[in-house]
Write a protein that binds this DNA or RNA. Structure first.
Lengths: 255, 255
DNA sequence: CAGCAACATCCCGTATAGCGGGAAGAACTA
DNA sequence: TAGTTCTTCCCGCTATACGGGATGTTGCTG
């Protein structure tokens, strides 16, 4: 943490981040109690953020919630723009080939953030999962990204990382995860077989840029029964799409 | 603007909002010049926001961009959650019926913010347009929302609103817009025929909640040539989907 | 229906956080 | 190699932000 920080801005950021999907609205008093601050201070932060449209206040109840200005900001997150352009056609091709949901994710610490998505024609999924974050250790996207994370950085991530067990198939031992990541590097793709949730299977491959750095991963996900029959061909299609996307980011195959 | 505001927080919000799709990254010096502040002050704000993951700094160039924490916040915006659940099946049905892209939007002042989307099976569109905002006066979604905006509020919006002309078909006169909104109320749906962009046609209908308040609109959009043949049946499907979504929000048809 | 509780909002005295000038260090360019 | 541009940091000064407590509103309960 930088020494030269603005504590009022940090407090306001903390306030913003207290609004979550599971706790979408707060009153002045209960937020003050939650944060251990006075109602005066919290009220000032909330009304300032509301003036800036980052929050909204329900005029009937007086409670605050996140505001629409956040959509504008989320839509402007730039690293995904270059990535978006690169994955446009490969994602569409992959979706049309596999008829399944296709996603692109990036690593954020011990999580995956899904930044792009194309629904399968017969999927009920929605944009609401845009920006969704998931565990890195038990998703194919996460494992595809961790597999190519520099060793020193992976060591730092693993230190103190008590891998959450999501299903009975979830890898929870560091040694097992390291072995699995080695297997991912050998095969060139990662799989998730009921590790993040029972019934969910996915395959992911890394997307690299012109410096050969893995910057994202592309995946196909669906219910297990549709995958088991065609895993080899899906894996091939995913690695093909990942290479196509990589090429568009300037990656060249070694001679 | 509230008198009781935190100017450091307001400055930080201004900094965040300076990052846009068209200007996705800033250095300390050029942002300071842009905002008329000293580099010391701007640097402190930027590094504090980076500590909070709302911004990221490129370690090679020193320039700042928006951070991934914004996805978490955008995904947690609550008013869309209830709406999402309500529009789930109606959107899917509408997409399957029309084979076109389906969106749900809400009004934000003189703009529409698209908060849900389902791509047509043959669309190249992507999540990058999630949260996209568009003019209200020349989109079917916008007109469907403005048509049911209380008169006093519509008057306030129109006052000083110089309607931007996007194509030769765009409504730019207040009187013409009022007449058009009357027509929307009479027909129960709104249309956009090359008004927001040449070649783009869409049809939208209002979604109401249990208090009979119009809270969102659902629309189908596509290229003009696919719409012209089936406008009546598409309009019927859209109004049907809007009613289904409304019912799920507790709306009941008057006896 | 009156009293009470809970909440948001606001005022004001105090002190500390934040401001900007300017210096230091790094990287780039002519 | 010197000059330029940029980011980062230090420090004195002052204006902002803090929290206690008061006020007003709304809803609940006996």
């Amino acid at each position: 943490m930088s020494r030269n920080r603005l504590r009022t801005v940090a407090s306001a950021a903390t306030v913003l981040k207290t609004f979550t999907a599971s706790r979408p609205d707060w009153g002045v008093s209960d937020l003050a109690a939650h944060l251990g601050k006075s109602t005066s201070s919290v009220h000032r932060i909330l009304s300032t953020l509301a003036d800036e449209k980052l929050l909204e206040q329900d005029p009937e109840t007086g409670r605050y919630k996140l505001g629409l200005a956040l959509f504008d900001l989320a839509a402007a997150v730039p690293s995904q723009r270059t990535l978006q352009e690169a994955v446009l056609l490969p994602m569409t091709d992959l979706r049309n080939t596999t008829r399944e949901t296709v996603q692109v994710g990036v690593l954020d610490g011990r999580h995956v953030v899904y930044v792009e998505r194309l629904d399968s024609p017969h999927s009920l999924r929605f944009f609401s999962e845009f920006g969704r974050r998931a565990d890195a250790h038990c998703t194919s996207t996460g494992k595809a990204l961790l597999a190519y994370t520099p060793t020193s950085r992976l060591d730092r991530l693993l230190k103190g990382w008590d891998l959450p067990q999501r299903t009975e198939h979830t890898i929870i031992a560091h040694s097992a995860l390291r072995a699995e990541l080695k297997r991912v590097r050998r095969r060139g793709f990662a799989t998730n077989r009921h590790e993040s949730a029972v019934g969910v299977v996915s395959i992911a491959a890394p997307i690299r840029d012109q410096r050969r750095t893995t910057v994202a991963a592309i995946s196909v996900a669906g219910p297990a029964e549709r995958f088991d029959e065609h895993q080899d061909s899906i894996a091939q299609a995913v690695t093909h799409a990942a290479l196509a996307a990589s090429r568009r980011l300037g990656f060249t195959v070694a001679a």
